[in-house]
Amino acid sequence: MRRRSLLASPALLAPLLASAQGALPARRIPSSGETVPVIGLGTWITFNVGQDPPERARCIQVMKAFFEGGGRVIDSSPMYGSSQGVVGEGLARLGATGRVFSAEKVWTSGDGAAQIEATRRLWGVPRFDLMQVHNLLAIERQLPLLMEMKARGEVRHVGITTSEGRRHAEIAQTLRTRKLDFVQLSYNPVDREAESVLLPLAADRGVAVLVNRPFQEGALLRRLQRHPLPAWAADSGAASWAQLVLQFILAHPAVTCIIPATGNVAHVRENLAAARLPALTAAQRQRIASHIASL
């Protein structure tokens, strides 16, 4: 996907929650008290490049820019093709195994432990910071496994995921009845169903929120880029549609980290820069949502 990479000037970049100069703004994981930067990196489609050396090198450059910009959270899944191996190669080449907050998923109705171990070898990490049941597949089998692994110290946090607004009722029921560390869901100025139940419930239950598909896999940005960025976007420092969308998402207090997928160095820098823009007011959020809905 192509998108304009118009970054805001440094004078407009203001930390949200960062305490150290230059650090990427971070938010707290309620269950552990640990903090993670508010912008992460997804790998769906963008890192599924097979064994092609130039494409793998491009992905590693994206990871390099991500870490240099203060990013830590990288999310992948067994259903993402070669993405896991690309991430592992990147971590090894960049010497970044100790810097990453590794977020992965179990995605099988069979032997979850064997799949997780295969994934761990691909990443080359000693253990995962977060292991999630992907799209609730075989959750009655896999979630107890993850809880046992956490109790043994083999994973650090446990969560569940959904995407594209699917199965929200089941996600809500799981949040109400299980003690989770994370929930991953889709949320952006167009897909706002999570605002009604899941985001308030996560906040009430002390569950961190990872947001996937902030740009609807690029479809939202392709639509928006047919229109000029409104002049009033400058009031919040956003210099591109991508930054405006990310600002909107980050302004929700239940959101912990957004994981936009990209295979473009300029885009990952643009996304990270959005984290340092001022927090939006409720009126600004509503203006963004209403404007986008009108286009």
Rank of each mutant, 00 (worst) to 15 (best):
G263Q: 06
L199K: 11
D191T: 09
E148M: 10
V207W: 07
P253K: 01
V86A: 08
G237H: 02
G85C: 05
M147I: 05
R226T: 07
P260D: 01
W232L: 06
R152Y: 00
S163M: 06
G90I: 11
L244Y: 00
L41A: 05
V158G: 09
R222E: 14
L175G: 09
R72W: 00
M63Y: 01
T119M: 15
Q84D: 15
M149L: 15
L17G: 14
D235V: 02
G22N: 13
V211M: 06
G153N: 12
R120H: 08
V36N: 09
V125S: 07
I249S: 03
Y187N: 11
V183D: 12
A234P: 06
I74M: 04
P214G: 04
D191C: 03
A202V: 12
R3M: 12
L143D: 11
A172H: 06
A113R: 15
D129K: 03
W44A: 13
L210E: 10
Q243R: 04
A23K: 12
R156H: 12
V133W: 00
A231W: 08
M149S: 01
I259F: 07
L277Y: 05
V155I: 14
L295V: 14
S196C: 06
T161H: 00
A274C: 09
L130F: 10
L180E: 13
A203V: 02
V197H: 08
H267P: 02
R28W: 08
P144H: 03
L244N: 03
T281D: 02
Q115V: 10
L277C: 11
A274Q: 04
E117A: 15
I160M: 07
V73Q: 01
A238W: 05
L175Q: 06
V38Q: 13
